[in-house]
């Protein structure tokens, strides 16, 4: 968990000359450089719509945040929820309700969706954290199914048709979100903000206690930590960020649909975390990119998407449990240095 002493290394190598210094920094901070390149590419997206469709990238960003928020609970907290679509989807519906039927601006819609998901996360968490492991998975799955049926029946959700034509509106009264470029920057900003928050949670004192609970719950309990409160808190954070992703998705596509609360999506997000590397902080974002891309390009083939997703799932579980990011990390770290 400790960060490598980057600045110290840079100081040591600095006197040895320009090119070497640059090379050392590059080697030491490969991830930082990669992140920077990625950020530049992401910022460039809305200006080259003929190369890559910005709305698709917005979906990618939403799902990346969703997957990382989910993985905060699974990979980091060691709690497997199989009902995270409930948070994503209900936030999407609430954002639609607040902006379309109640006429509030988009920032209120996003906030309302996120808060609703957080509240729902508190309810789910309070019920589920009494049981561990697979029971927790079954309980969250069942509760999410209940949420699915509720949204199927509520009058404003449009049932099978979904809640359509959600207005994007004007952010803070002066940024017109109907413009894809403005919408894109909002989504990018919120996604990066969410990911930063996840990073902060993982590297905070709170995060260290969560790790202690994951690794040895009775010991953490005997040290006096209120284990239930920590678990619930993590559950709520994960649900709220999943909700933020769902709210953004509702504004981007101007649609909240039953597929957003369906257990298929709960399964998809598990796959994203697993494929990307659930024991890494941002690996699930890579998994999200792969899964969303796959579904985008295979969309026309109907049942084949489900079938192929299932096959990837099985292959990952059987022989690729550390995921893409885990594999990359293993390549970079020399055998003797693995923590």
């Amino acid at each position: 968990m400790t960060k490598p002493p980057r600045s110290a290394a840079a100081r040591v190598t600095a006197p040895q000359g320009g090119m070497f210094f640059l090379g050392a920094v590059l080697r030491k901070n490969l991830f930082a450089v990669a992140a920077l390149v990625l950020l530049v590419l992401l910022l460039a997206v809305p200006w080259v719509p003929q190369v890559v469709y910005p709305v698709f990238v917005m979906k990618l960003l939403c799902m990346a945040l969703f997957a990382c928020a989910y993985s905060l609970l699974l990979g980091f907290g060691g709690m497997m929820s199989f009902g995270h679509a409930a948070f994503f989807g209900s936030a999407a519906y609430i954002t639609g309700l607040v902006t379309k039927y109640w006429g509030f601006p988009p920032e209120v819609g996003l906030l309302a969706g996120t808060l609703f998901a957080a509240g729902l996360g508190a309810v789910f968490g309070a019920l589920a954290i009494h049981r561990q492991g697979i029971y927790l998975a079954m309980i969250t799955l069942a509760l999410a199914q209940m949420v699915y049926f509720i949204f199927l029946q509520l009058p404003f959700t449009g049932a099978e048709d979904g809640l359509q034509q959600i207005p994007r509106g004007t952010l803070f009264g002066f940024i017109d979100l109907r413009n894809d470029v403005a919408m894109y920057h909002l989504v990018l900003l919120l996604t990066l903000g969410g990911l930063w928050l996840i990073y902060r949670v993982v590297h905070s004192p709170f995060g260290h206690v969560v790790v202690a609970i994951r690794e040895h719950e009775p010991r953490a309990r005997s040290l006096g930590y209120p284990v239930e409160r920590y678990k619930l808190m993590l559950f709520v954070i994960s649900a709220a960020l999943s909700g933020l992703a769902g709210s953004m998705k509702a504004l981007v596509f101007q649609l909240a649909a039953l597929s957003d609360v369906h257990w298929h999506l709960s399964g998809d997000v598990v796959l994203m975390a697993l494929l990307g590397g659930m024991h890494t902080v941002f690996g699930p974002a890579v998994g999200a990119a792969v899964v969303v891309g796959l579904q985008y390009y295979l969309d026309a083939f109907g049942g084949w998407v489900t079938l192929i997703t299932g096959l990837i799932f099985m292959v990952c579980v059987l022989s690729f449990r550390s995921g893409i990011a885990g594999a990359v990390l293993a390549l970079r770290t020399r055998p003797g240095l693995t923590p």
């Binding site: 497997m80 492991g133 697979i134 998975a137 598990v270 049942g303 489900t306 299932g310 799932f313 579980v317």
Partner: peptide
Amino acid sequence: PIYGLLLTFGLVLVLEGG
């Protein structure tokens, strides 16, 4: 045991999709 759940979940998708 979570991995068992996940593997059989993958099988669900394969069978349903098929």
